[in-house]
Design a protein around this nucleic acid. Structure first.
Lengths: 343, 343
DNA sequence: ATGAAAGCGCTAACAT
DNA sequence: ATGTTAGCGCTTTCAT
């Protein structure tokens, strides 16, 4: 047999020995931290190549105090929004040779804090998606987590950069669209009560109600996923509303599915809007009118803010993506009379 | 102000000093590695609590040779399959107090190798999703990556545990369904040509064609996502087939969307099947007939296999999930005559 | 039962 | 320009 099996990973000492130089020279050559005589450098490179040597990231991290890793903490990987954020972040970070650690708190606000703090110790910074954490808890947490970038919520009174979608203006756009279509009785299927993005939507609703007193707006607790929307159908039909603003596309899809089962036509009998513009929204029957949120870009920008912080620049400014109205087939003119509950 | 701001993270030396004991005692108390006098132990715990001390995972990893982290390497996080795998894996690993590093090779088979090797050094093992890597390259790579668990493909001639879906039997089920519905001219929209899961489907097709010579089966290159399916519509309509087996649900959805635009009715004019049973498949109009693959469970089982390897048990057996046929609305009896291309 | 000291693999002063 | 040495924060012999 040629060449012994390599028992374990080679160390810098192996390379130094083989090249007949000191550890520091090897380190210098490999990191390019100082001038090294070209002859020696060549020897080192050769030795490293022969041994298939690469420096232990662990050991480097320990001494450098830097892991070249960031973590993203999300409440639920299943949620298309966080999934998109992870995707955008992961690609962007990879371009800068950073790695990403993912931590899914499985919706437990309790765990989230602990998880974030523990995860933080394994990396250089945290991208935090914690829509439901009470603001005060969040502010306290932020101190231990630096550097942090927030996604889809802000922490007032701190200089933590945040990358968010402007859910308020997005919902306002949808409300205006429905109003222009002649709807005078609207219903909002609310998401997680205390979540930032739900509160923003409620703010839009409040503004709208004040500006358009002739339009009735009901708020009905619902949820954030398909099943929640599906279960809301009967309540919606009993409400007399001619248009429904679902918390997000998933809820809208669930609702539309249940409406279909009941023979209610969208948009002829009832208009429905979603939120987010998940990939399938445009391909539903009818295509879903929604406010498009560039989730992957949220993740990408979150990385850019993080990269600034890691370069020990001062915190950059928070950035807000304005959702774009996607006026598609699930909304239309208000019917002459409100639909009655079927069945 | 009460208490100085803590300049940087506390070390075990700080705790030892405060408790008036040696470093080793602190280590022993914290890890429970040896008996320590209860009085001392209490002092140590108190000191640790006061300083809010937790051991540096980095330093521990370096000395223990273990990071408590595994990496999952995927070709594309956007793909619902890999996304599901990540989700299942992440939750399962978290339960065992393991962290997960995610590496997205952005579809580049070239990068994949390098990425995997580099990522491997930062963790204890790799869960590899590399459907397109040539088998020989894969086998070579496997050596450097140990411990490895493969997802959705096997590496013959190795003992690397694999967790896969049986795409072959899944497609066979779909083929049988269509045949029983009277279809005699089928068309398969193929995925990535060399990917394992595409090859498995082709094998099913081959078997089927041999067993049922009276049924015509065409294979048309297509792709793996929505847009690919959408673009395939005209070719499908010109083919004379009465039923189409899309590579996966995304392709099926794209196709159905394009068919809708052309006024082709599913399943009356044309039956369509997907594969995977992504969350929205059942809510399409019509609901998609497909073969359901439990992606999150794939990830979960991948973790279990990995956990065995990490416990230095011998490699467990590979496991194969049999897709379940979901007979829904997008398939039906073959029309009396094949549809003609519209427009 | 406890402490002193070596060492995980590396980088960065500090010498020369 | 190169080598020697002291750590990074921890665990684990090895003494006592």
């Amino acid at each position: 047999m040629k060449g012994r099996a390599q028992d374990r990973s080679r160390t810098i000492a192996d390379v130094a020995a083989r090249a007949g130089v000191s550890l520091s020279t090897v380190s210098r050559v490999i990191n390019g931290t100082a001038r090294v005589d070209e002859a020696l450098a060549a020897k080192v490179r050769a030795a490293a190549a022969e041994l298939d040597y690469t420096a232990s990231p662990l050991a480097r991290s320990l001494v450098l105090g830097r892991t070249n890793t960031v973590a993203v903490v999300v409440p639920d990987l299943e949620n298309p929004t966080f999934h998109g954020v992870l995707r955008g972040l992961s690609r962007a970070a990879a371009r800068d040779r950073y790695h990403v650690l993912v931590a899914d708190s499985a919706e437990s606000v309790e765990e989230e804090r602990i998880l974030a703090v523990e995860t933080r110790r394994r990396c250089d910074g945290i991208v935090l998606c914690a829509p439901r954490m009470p603001e005060e808890d969040l502010r306290r947490l932020l101190g231990q987590l630096q550097p942090v970038v927030l996604v889809n919520r802000e922490a007032r009174g701190t200089s933590t950069p945040a990358v968010t979608a402007d859910y308020r203006s997005g919902l306002t756009d949808l409300l205006d669209l429905l109003r222009r279509d002649g709807h005078r009785s609207l219903l909002y299927l609310a998401g997680a009560p205390q979540s930032s993005s739900n509160l923003q939507r409620l703010a839009a609703l409040r503004d709208f109600a004040a500006e358009h007193p002739q339009v009735a707006v009901q708020v009905v607790p619902c949820g954030v996923n398909f099943a929640d929307g599906h279960a809301a159908a009967d309540g919606v039909l009993g409400s007399g509303a001619t248009a429904v603003l679902a918390f997000n596309d998933l809820v809208a899809m669930g609702l539309m599915s249940a409406l279909g089962e009941r023979g209610v036509r969208v948009p002829q009998d009832l208009s429905v809007t979603g939120f987010d513009d998940i990939p399938f929204a445009r391909y539903l029957t009818p295509p879903l009118t929604t406010a498009s949120v560039p989730v992957a870009e949220l993740g990408e920008q979150a990385w850019h803010r993080m990269a600034e912080l890691l370069g020990s620049q001062p915190p950059g400014h928070s950035i807000l993506f304005r959702p774009r109205l996607e006026d598609r087939g699930s909304t239309g003119p208000a019917p002459a009379r409100a639909v009655e509950a079927a069945s």
